[in-house]
């Protein structure tokens, strides 16, 4: 028996290293130099494979699945938060900062188990506060999107 999680981790690192090394072989070199843009990624790739093998060896030595420190896992909210971030990235330019932020806040409050009232309150207040801090004080040009006609 072995710790399967370590075996998976080790194999993933080896695969990542191998992929890096293969892509790096395609990088051009200049004027017959033995060293070029591929040198550093190749070293990193070797390192990834080596440490992947090391972790797999640890897993084999452990001989059993070690228990987790944390309690149970809930995949739903996890995927939900990832979706919120992706939504924000997609919606920021077309919808504008205020709308995208309000929707993201409302959804993530619900994902963390908050109520509709609390979520709506944060969705209304949050973007205004962030606008004041980032746009007005720190001068970060946040996109206006749909709200461009009423931009101030």
């Amino acid at each position: 028996m072995a710790d399967t999680r370590d075996l998976v981790t080790g194999s993933a690192l080896c695969a990542l290293g191998a992929a890096m090394a293969i892509v790096a072989r395609g990088f051009p070199t200049v004027g017959g130099m033995a060293y070029g843009p591929d040198l550093f990624p190749t070293i990193v790739a070797v390192g990834l494979v080596a440490s992947g093998l090391g972790i797999a060896a640890e897993g084999l030595a452990a001989g059993r699945n070690r228990p987790d420190e944390d309690g149970g896992r809930r995949l739903g909210p996890l995927v939900g938060i990832l979706a919120v971030i992706a939504f924000f990235a997609l919606a920021l330019d077309p919808l504008g900062f205020h709308i995208a932020a309000a929707i993201s806040l409302l959804c993530s409050v619900r994902l963390f188990g908050g109520g509709m009232v609390a979520g709506t309150a944060l969705a209304l207040v949050g973007p205004v506060v962030l606008h004041a801090v980032f746009y007005s004080v720190l001068r970060v040009p946040l996109p206006w999107g749909l709200l461009l006609p009423v931009a101030w």
């Binding site: 938060i81 919120v84 971030i85 924000f88 900062f97 932020a101 993201s104 806040l105 993530s108 409050v109 963390f112 188990g113 908050g114 609390a118 944060l122 949050g126 962030l130 980032f134 970060v140 946040l142």
Partner: peptide
């Protein structure tokens, strides 16, 4: 937590 985490999330993205 249900208020803090979403705020931090948005703050991080911004």
């Amino acid at each position: 937590r249900s208020m803090l985490m979403p705020s931090v999330l948005l703050l991080s993205m911004i």
